[in-house]
Design a protein around this nucleic acid. Structure first.
Length: 173
DNA sequence: CCACGGATTGGCT
DNA sequence: GCCAATCCGTGGA
């Protein structure tokens, strides 16, 4: 959920990946604390935004205890509210095709584009900001699929990707 | 100081 | 399926 320009951009998180600084070579925190990843070493509840490939932002929810360096990467969101606003952020226009609707936030960098998240949102306290996450009490464990993570070279064996079965809004099966 | 390559995406073959 | 785009964090000289 994000309050943005007076509007409430909302979506359901349908795909995530977990990263653990202590044992996970693919985690940004694996080599220890640096200026870039320092927010990941805070107590859970903050937003960690990083810039990659010279053009994309991706966002994570810090989840661990202080100094543990753990976070969950948001990989895909199903848009629920203010979809036209997200379309403008993402495609530069408010009218989109059905195909584009499923594609609007179906990837970590696409989420940041659609929700207007960038470098300045790094370190946001999700418990008291215009960006926040609500519980989804309807979600059943049986709807969640667990697989290996995508797009990494190290620690590929760790089964820390989770997505909602049958969702058409995830980045990849 | 400099070189390398990335938790990606979209366009072209 | 392949690859360019395009910054900057990180690590080695």
């Amino acid at each position: 959920m994000r309050e943005f320009n007076g509007k409430r951009l909302a979506g359901k998180i349908v795909e995530v990946e977990a990263y653990d600084g202590l044992i996970d070579e693919a985690a940004h925190t694996y080599g220890g604390k640096t200026k870039r990843n320092e927010i990941m070493f805070e107590e859970g509840g903050f937003l960690y935004v990083y810039f990659t490939y010279g053009m994309h932002f991706c966002c994570n929810v810090v989840t661990g205890k202080k100094d543990h360096g753990q976070a969950v990467l948001l990989r895909a969101i199903e848009p629920l509210n203010e979809i036209e606003e997200m379309a403008v952020n993402r495609f530069g226009r408010n009218k989109i095709s059905g195909k584009e609707l499923f594609n609007i936030a179906s990837g970590p960098a696409k989420i940041c584009k659609a929700f207007g998240i960038n470098r300045s949102d790094n370190g946001t306290d999700l418990t008291k900001s215009e960006i926040y996450i609500l519980d989804n009490p309807k979600l059943k464990m049986s709807e969640i699929v667990q697989t290996a993570r995508i797009g990494i070279k190290k620690s590929k064996e760790l089964p820390w990707r989770f997505y909602i079965k049958n969702s058409r809004f995830i980045s990849k099966k």
